[in-house]
Design a protein around this nucleic acid. Sequence first.
RNA 1: GGCUAGGUGGCAGAGUGGUUAUGCAGCGGCCUGCAAAGCCGUGUACCUCGGUUCGACUCCGGGCCUAGCCUCCA
Length: 460
Amino acid sequence: MSIRIYNTLSREKETFVPLDPKRVTLYACGPTVYNFAHIGNARPAVIFDLLYRVLSRRFSNVIYARNITDVDDKINAAAAEEGVSIDVITRRYADAYHADMAALGVGRPTVEPRATDHIDAIVKMIERLIELGHAYEAEGHVLFNVENFSDYGQLSRRDRREMIAGARVEVAPYKKHPGDFVLWKPSSDDLPGWDSPWGRGRPGWHIECSAMSASHLGEVIDIHAGGQDLVFPHHENEIAQSRCAHGTDTFARYWMHNGFVTVEKRKMSKSLGNTLIVHELLKQWPGEALRYLLLSAHYRQPLDWSEKALEQAQTTLDRLYGLLRDHASDAFAEQVEPDPAVTAALEDDLNTPTALAALNGLARQLGHADPAERPALAARLRATGELVGLLQQDPEAWFSQRQVKVELSEADILNLIEQRQQARQARDFSEADRIRDQLADQGIVIKDGPDGTSWEVAAR
RNA sequence: GGCUAGGUGGCAGAGUGGUUAUGCAGCGGCCUGCAAAGCCGUGUACCUCGGUUCGACUCCGGGCCUAGCCUCCA
């Protein structure tokens, strides 16, 4: 079996064949660090982290680049508002991004390039585009000329002429064509800027990804990924710049786009004020529950976020961790392969819902397996969880993070259980139930089993 | 207006031209003094109207509805 990927370019699921199997290249558009990430920003991070894991099983050398945009007008605005320099802002939110993503089980990419470290490469690329007649200077700006790039609109399936007709934005007077976009723009003295052949200025948004992608991965890459809203104009523009600058007929061979996280069916966005900040959610919920929920829908579908769904994800994880707690893994768990049904689902265009279904099937198998087979099944469940980025905690740690505060000492608890035990033996069940209720009120759950009574701290 | 996705059981959410998704909730059972947990079992679900077909939820066409992009946006 091979890996299948839905390619936005062809609008079809294709078999993934890398240009060079010894060096597979993946680029995902990363965050602009001017505030905390919301759960919609987390979705591509989780999805493409998973893609990287899936690719890495098949190919020994996968280079995954996920950039950090650290020069942007929104960053400038945030810095101005607080009266600090932009690097105070970008450092703060880049750190927060890393912490939040780590809590969601997202690993670090192979390289994490920053726009401000690539100004030279960006300037060189723009110079080249001007030389080749694909860009022009106007009033301190440098603009890309979409007119003489005939494939413009191929990815988003847009027609240039129709775009002019339907344009709802005022067109800057210095543009030759309404679709032309900025490669470089002038900076006033109070804004961050770099010297360039066109005066002090800063890069436009699209050019940084083209420059960083070429610097770290090469002129033609295997997979380029990002959110659906980047198809146009961001990715369309990246294709135009990169192909024109490098004289290639392909920029990225496969394009992958994730759907949005919605709230009450509406896209999560700042303008609607319906964003859910990961940093805040993590105060109330385990990161792993957020990850489970993000994986519960297929990445190209919209995912409607709700507290109810989050609770369900958490309940499901409770059950899975309960099984892992009750059944010790085989000692050689590291050598166990993930469930083939799960890898097959993931290799089929990252079908995470089917993968999670298979994971649950495996758990069910474990639940009623012959005792002799359980350690091996538990190990397999762990190994499968590792691939999807779930079930890697100590089960005790999973449960304890969710426990309520308990005032009683362990001696008190054992004492009460003993009293209840005596009441039960005396068949004074009303007294036994009273003690059980009393313990429950204080956050202790009693479980009577064949080997006596055990207890645990209740979950929140 | 142009372009893109989608409409599946109480909810979430995969998938398939004729056969069990899965999770959560519900119901019945096992276990228990009763519970809890766990396990077992359990649902004539595929927007609408036509067409293709021996047979369509699955393919094709029309309609209705929803969301998204066309402007910063994951």
